[in-house]
Amino acid sequence: MPPIRIWKPEDFRLDPSRPLYEQFVEQVRAMIAKGELESGTRLPSVREAAGSLRVNPTTIMKTYQELERLGLIVTHRGQGTFVTESEATIVNSRRELAREAVARLEDTARSIGLTLDQLLALAREKE
């Protein structure tokens, strides 16, 4: 049985003005994409996670529901919840994260009147 990853409050950076579960989902997705949270790692139960993170159990429940919907975690009855072992799912997730990051960068470029390519070119210019 693989060891259980215990969540600690220091694992996450939370903005109290945004839904917490969205932030948990984003940050767990990133951990999985980075390989910081390995395939097959066993995750704590909703109750254990809520306790160690000191957040409302409903928040964790929504987080796990969304991660399961994304296919990033799977629950095996009687055994627990695990990070997916599907390499394809993780690659897709990484691609999705990359797309989102680029979209944010394009917004930044637009806010100063540039396209993404212009932004990158400008940043690389030597003075």
Binding site: V46, R47, A50, G51, S52, R54, V55, N56, P57
Partner: peptide
Amino acid sequence: RESIAQAVVGELAD
């Protein structure tokens, strides 16, 4: 304070 909060979470979870 942290263990009080954690105990409350446990009760909520049930």
